[in-house]
Amino acid sequence: MQSETKSHVEQLTSPAGHPVTVLRFEGDIASTSKEAVLGAYQALPKATVKLILLDFTKVDYINSSGIALVIQLLIEAANA
């Protein structure tokens, strides 16, 4: 019933010329989305990835458990 969370990674260059890693999410973000949200972030090569853009424009549904996963991602990124 819960639609799957998809995530994929793209590399862009910002207008200032900095490399930006974009994490694009699709579908639902809920309690079952841990791997798609945190796993996708944790798989990024931290040595080279410095700027990350989270793209939720194709997310159909996010609930409080999904927001909690995004907060966890932000905490991990802040501590990296």
């Binding site: 609930n63 409080s64 927001i67 996963l69 905490i75």
Partner: peptide
């Protein structure tokens, strides 16, 4: 506090 990891990131449903 949630953003600083000082509080469980869950537990927002009732307040929403």
């Amino acid at each position: 506090r949630k953003m600083h990891g000082e509080e469980d990131p869950r537990g927002m449903g009732m307040f929403l």
